[in-house]
């Protein structure tokens, strides 16, 4: 087990390093640089000003030197400094990360729970009307552009009905603390997390349904039935347990997509997460921030995959037997 973990850790480190180098090269290929953007924003762009900024950022050094500087800092866990935001990148990301995690994890749980429950129901009522209704709804959500669904949700629930806040993470500067603040955040969280969750729900519905039906046909289920166990017990203890494996695999794969989807959702809902941070950093060529966000989100995905693997080991009876 320890060897397994160590091996994975080394692999994760190598992948992160490769991602960093690739992105570093890509980002530096983009036209414009942060000095120009900052000069532009300041409406103050005499060559000396821009040269000073470039020197300050180290952009006047050869590309290879810049890359080496970044990577050697990166190796010690230092993500660099955002000159535009005047603060260390790690601080900036840590500031925004909780919001993204809250959004992604809520959306993930919503999609997983709704998806698995709906999938189990659909499988149990195979061929009946409720089965096709569930499948159709799931497919519709899957085919709907995420940003469009978000816009329509805001139009309906915030503007027309006034039930939900249209944007934001919390009521700004409300001085709320403790439970009141948590409820406030939860209220703001509903629309974005449900919209993001519904999009991913569809795949869980389909996978769960298909997987349940397949496991139902396996011999051990027949044996269990023959032994006279109650159908509900069979479904819960035996079928679902085995049918969940592909769902776990899928969940691991979704981690990356959740972060990507968060970019869109965070933009529409003004959610102060790292997705938005990334988009802003990209537009202002805030290299270090952009690299930092990529590294952190890749690390998150890798961690998610690691968790998936562990879950797999715990859930899969065959692997446990070994």
């Amino acid at each position: 087990m320890l060897r397994f973990i160590l091996g994975r850790m080394v692999k994760i480190a190598l992948i992160l390093l490769a991602i960093t180098i690739l992105n570093f090269c890509l980002i530096h290929m983009a036209p414009g640089d942060p000095a120009l953007v900052m000069a532009g924003e300041a409406g103050d762009a005499d060559p000396k000003f821009i040269e000073d900024l470039r020197a300050q950022f180290g952009l006047d050094k050869p590309f290879i030197v810049q890359l080496w500087t970044y990577v050697s800092h990166f190796a010690t866990g230092d993500l660099g400094f955002s000159y535009r935001q005047q603060m260390p990148v790690s601080e900036l990301i840590l500031d925004r990360l909780p919001a993204t995690l809250l959004l992604s994890i809520s959306a993930f749980l919503i999609s997983l729970i709704l998806g698995v429950v709906a999938g189990v129901i659909a499988a149990a009522r195979q061929g009946k009307a409720s089965d096709s209704i569930i499948s159709t709804i799931a497919l519709l959500f899957y085919a709907t552009p995420l940003f469009w669904m978000a816009l329509m949700a805001v139009l309906l629930f915030s503007v027309q009905l006034g039930w939900m806040p249209a944007f934001g993470y919390e009521t700004a500067a409300s001085d709320m603390t403790g439970l009141a603040r948590m409820l406030d955040i939860a209220h703001h969280l509903i629309l974005p997390s449900v919209v993001l969750g519904l999009f991913f729900m569809a795949t869980y519905v389909r996978i769960t349904r298909a997987s349940m039906l397949e496991v139902n046909r396996l011999d051990f289920v027949k044996t269990a039935r023959a032994k006279g166990l109650k159908p509900s017990v069979i479904q819960r203890r035996h079928v679902l347990r085995n049918a969940i494996l592909p769902v776990v695999t899928l969940a691991g794969l979704h981690a990356g997509q959740l972060v990507g989807g968060a970019v869109l959702i965070e933009t529409v809902f003004a959610w102060p997460g790292i997705g938005r941070l990334m988009f802003e950093a990209l537009q202002s060529r805030d290299y270090n921030v952009l690299l930092g966000v990529f590294t952190v989100s890749a690390a998150l995905v890798l961690m998610f995959n690691l968790i998936t693997d562990f879950t797999y080991r715990i859930v899969d009876p065959r692997i446990r037997l070994k």
Binding site: Q257, V263, V301
Partner: peptide, 21 residues
């Protein structure tokens, strides 16, 4: 490993960066 590498980067975010560049 290469395939995994591309799967680990959040795809939509990566697409945004590529198009912008």
């Amino acid at each position: 490993r290469i395939t995994e590498f591309f799967q680990v980067i959040p795809s939509f975010a990566f697409a945004i960066v590529l198009v912008a560049i």
